[in-house]
């Protein structure tokens, strides 16, 4: 029993961290642009493909491979996805920031489809699942007879580091201050000389790059990646952000942990729970929207005039 408990705890923390990283992107973008970027999950899940392609390109071009070069490839992917986010914002999303929410919703959902189909058609055999390596393997330690892998430690420590860095960036840097100001009052921010193009660019780069890391961990956890993983990543990340309170960073982390918790509980205690897990997750989302629409840690929903 203790073994099962610890095992599920490990699963919970691993998944919770990945969802939290996804949710942070949704929350950050919503906080700044007031737009729900429904294709954020798809953007994030381009990263494993880019990493695989980069690893292959490295192998072909300079004949290198192995863990170090895989790391290089993943860094390339994270940076590239950050840029993809910036470009998508510039070309599409920014234009909907003052539009009715419905338009932004349709546009970003459509954008997600475009991204998925592009992966499918541009990546060699893009319709098939592609094996994705564990970014860290082997057993790091044993707790109550349960082996905790380096991968889990990697996920947890990476998440902690990213959260601390993001927090420091938003709290301590001039650009972070401007992002927070623009997310509170865009018009007055402009009166204070803040260029929203810069704010948006930085926000999208950071959100997409963090999403890319989540995407790499997601694929690495699953062992495979597929062109349509972005749908699930998007739904789970978005739900986590909603439960925690859109726009709230601590909320995003809490939401990620809650969603992962429900998933793990369902898998453990409900017969055939693995196939029902999403039912529970989304029932919770509905419940939160009904009883606490602003999310657990969000600010009360205000009607924008």
């Amino acid at each position: 029993m203790a073994e099962l408990f610890v095992q599920q705890l490990v699963n919970w923390v691993t998944l919770g961290c990945i969802y939290a990283l996804l949710a942070i992107g949704f929350s950050l973008i919503f906080g700044v642009l007031n737009v729900i970027h429904f294709s954020h999950g798809d953007v994030a899940m381009t990263s494993p493909f880019i990493a695989l392609a980069a690893a292959q390109a490295l192998a072909i071009a300079i004949g290198v491979s192995g863990p170090v070069w895989l790391t290089v490839a993943t860094c390339i992917a994270v940076f590239a996805v950050g840029l993809i986010g910036v470009i998508l914002d510039k070309v599409v999303i920014r234009r909907f920031r003052d539009a009715p929410a419905m338009m932004a919703l349709v546009a970003t959902v459509a954008l997600g489809i475009v991204i998925r189909e592009l992966i499918r058609h541009l990546y060699p055999q893009g319709s098939n699942p592609h094996a994705f390596p564990r970014l860290a393997s082997g057993v790091a330690l044993e707790i109550a007879g349960v082996q905790v892998g380096w991968f889990t430690l990697l996920v947890v420590s990476l998440t902690l580091v990213l959260v601390v860095l993001l927090f420091a960036f938003l709290r301590l840097t001039p650009l972070g201050l401007r992002i927070r100001a623009a997310s509170e009052d865009r018009i007055v921010a402009r009166m204070m000389g803040i260029r929203d193009t810069r704010v948006f660019r930085a926000t999208f780069f950071v959100a997409s790059a963090i999403g890319a890391i989540a995407g790499l961990l997601f694929a690495s956890y699953a062992g495979v990646t597929r062109f349509d993983f972005g749908v699930m990543a998007g739904l789970l990340g978005f739900s986590a952000a909603v439960i925690g309170g859109l726009g709230s960073m601590p909320g995003a982390i809490l939401g990620g942990l809650i969603i992962a918790g429900i998933e793990v509980l369902a898998q453990t205690f409900v017969p055939d729970g693995a196939s029902y897990r999403l039912v529970f997750v989304f029932l919770l989302v509905i419940g939160v929207l009904l009883f606490r629409p602003e999310g657990l840690l969000g600010r009360p929903v205000m009607v924008k005039v």
Binding site: R180, D185, V188, A189, M192, G193, I194
Partner: peptide, 20 residues
């Protein structure tokens, strides 16, 4: 007034200072 409500007073002033 439209201060940035969740920013501190000093941060509000910092933005005003940097701007001009």
């Amino acid at each position: 007034r439209r201060l940035f409500p969740s920013l501190t007073v000093q941060e509000n002033l910092r933005l005003g200072y940097d701007a001009v």
